[in-house]
Each structure stands twice: as structure tokens, then as C-alpha cells.
């Protein structure tokens, strides 16, 4: 399969080439991901959309360097990925802030000591301001809400200026209003920082609302089924004809069983 071209004609940031992954279950080899190939351009936002169990989180974990692939390779700005690193900031689905550190300490955690205390504090304060938590630096994670925790999780990786931001259903555990606010924040930050983002979701509306491209995945084994380019201006009107039409098409693609799928992505 040939790499899917990015929407923008920017240079490639992330390349996933023929990545497969098997798990061993009771001695049997179970394929989870099969021959996944795509490319993400600098500054692009790509959604990986699929039903639960399709391996989208596994794919994100491979890109993040948390687990090895069985075949294929992942290139980050041309360099093969083999372990986690600050060039790929990850926002997890669950709360993964360090509970013994304050909000500000969490955000400054990955910053180099070389910056000095003042320099670090300045960067942390700036980033906390960007995610709207300027007054919460001294709070402990247990004292703030779920939405605020995800803001901190976003801030602690953005402060490291990652080449790509990887998000694993980061808003799935939030209530609808908070989720909407997080969407707004993410869009604003992405526009401001020209941040490359790959995020995993099972929600077609979220995918179409946030992404430049939506990659729909198949299940058992996980494959790329179809690609949608979202050519709508931001901020997107969720009730506009274009948005609804695209959402319906994505939903239909997601709902199809493999036999009815419109064939593999043309090679």
C-alpha cells in the first residue's frame, strides 16, 4: 500500500510504513494490526477513528514507542522510532498526572534542568496560561476536576514542544460540556502553535470536528479502511450541511461490515 498523501503539502512529520502487530493469546498468534501505512504532514491534525478493539490505541502506543511493532516501521521526522521520547508528547485517556507533584511541577517535570529555576518557571507559567490554568499552579492534581487534569496533561507535553502530539481518546471520560471546551482549547492551541496532532477516537463527530483528515479503521485485524479529508473552515459549524454530510459518510464507513466495505484504500 502506498502512503496516503497529507492534505496540506507540508513536509512529512510522521510516517507509518507497513506496521503490523500480533499478540500472543494462549500460544495462538492473533493479528491486531495489519499493514498500516499513512503519513502525517507537519502541522496536520489526523484522527484515527475506529470501533473499540480495532487496535487504534495499540497503533498509537507503537507510534509513541511504548511497544514494538511486529513488522514495518515508524519514522518521526525521518528517524525510526524505537522508544518513547519528548518529540512525541502523549496525552493519555486516563489521568496520568503525577499525584505527588503540583500542577506547575507536573508541567515543569520534563523540562531540562539547564534552563535554571527561573527559566523553567517562566515556561511553565506561560503554558499554564495558554491552557487557561494560570491560577492553578500550586494545586495538587487531586484537587482539580477531570477537565482541568487533561489541560495539565496537555500543557506538560506542549511545553516540551513535541514534533507530534499523540492523544488517546483524551476527552472520552469528560462530560459533554467539558469535552466541548477541550475541543475549543485544542483547536485554538493547534492554530496558534501549528502543532501536528494524531488523535484516537471512536466518536465520528469529534473526528470530523477536529481533524484535517480522518482515517477510519477496520477491526480484527485492524486495518485502514477509508480516508476522509475534512475540507471545512475552522471553527466548524456542527450543523452546517457540509459537516453533517461528511459526518454521515464517516459514520456509514464506520458502520459497514468488512464484506460491504468499499474495498481497501486504492493502492
Amino acid at each position: 500500500m502506498e502512503a496516503l498523501g497529507p492534505k496540506s503539502d507540508g513536509s512529512p512529520c510522521l510516517k507509518v510504513e507497513g506496521v503490523s502487530r500480533d499478540f500472543r493469546v494462549n500460544g495462538r498468534r492473533v493479528p491486531i494490526l495489519e499493514d498500516i501505512t499513512f503519513m502525517v504532514a507537519e502541522g496536520e491534525v489526523v484522527a484515527l477513528l475506529g470501533p473499540s478493539g480495532c487496535g487504534k490505541t495499540t497503533l498509537l502506543n507503537i507510534i509513541a514507542g511504548f511497544m514494538p511493532q511486529s513488522a514495518g516501521r515508524v519514522l518521526m521526522r525521518g528517524r525510526p522510532v524505537n522508544k518513547p521520547g519528548p518529540d512525541r508528547g502523549v496525552v493519555f485517556q486516563e489521568d496520568a498526572l503525577l499525584p505527588w507533584l503540583t500542577v506547575a511541577e507536573n508541567v515543569g517535570f520534563g523540562l531540562r534542568n539547564g534552563l535554571g529555576k527561573g527559566g523553567r518557571r517562566a515556561q511553565v507559567d506561560h503554558m499554564l496560561g495558554l491552557v487557561g490554568l494560570g491560577n492553578y499552579g500550586d494545586y495538587l492534581p487531586r484537587a482539580i476536576s477531570g477537565g482541568m487534569k487533561q489541560r495539565v496533561a496537555l500543557a506538560r507535553v506542549l511545553v516540551l514542544q513535541p514534533a507530534a502530539l499523540l492523544m488517546d481518546e483524551p476527552f472520552a471520560a469528560l462530560d459533554a460540556l467539558t469535552r466541548h471546551q477541550m475541543h475549543e482549547l485544542l483547536i485554538a492551541l493547534q492554530q496558534q502553535l501549528r502543532q501536528t496532532v494524531v488523535f484516537v477516537t471512536h466518536d465520528p463527530e469529534e473526528a470530523v470536528k477536529l481533524a484535517d483528515r480522518v482515517l477510519v479503521m477496520d477491526k480484527s485485524p485492524g486495518r485502514l479502511r477509508q480516508e476522509f479529508t475534512v475540507d471545512l473552515p475552522r471553527p466548524r459549524q456542527l450543523d452546517s450541511a457540509g459537516f453533517l454530510e461528511l459526518k454521515r459518510a464517516v459514520l456509514a464507513s464506520l458502520g459497514q461490515r468488512r464484506a460491504e466495505a468499499p474495498g481497501p484504500i486504492p493502492s
Binding site: G65, G85, G89, A96, L98, F109, V157
Partner: peptide, 14 residues
């Protein structure tokens, strides 16, 4: 230990 804490640390370059 929550394995996410270790992943988060590794992801931030430790």
C-alpha cells in the same frame, strides 16, 4: 505503581 506514570515519565524524556 500505575504503569501510566512510568510511561508518562519515559514519554517526557526521562
Amino acid at each position: 505503581v500505575n504503569p501510566l506514570f512510568l510511561r508518562a515519565g519515559a514519554m517526557m524524556g526521562l
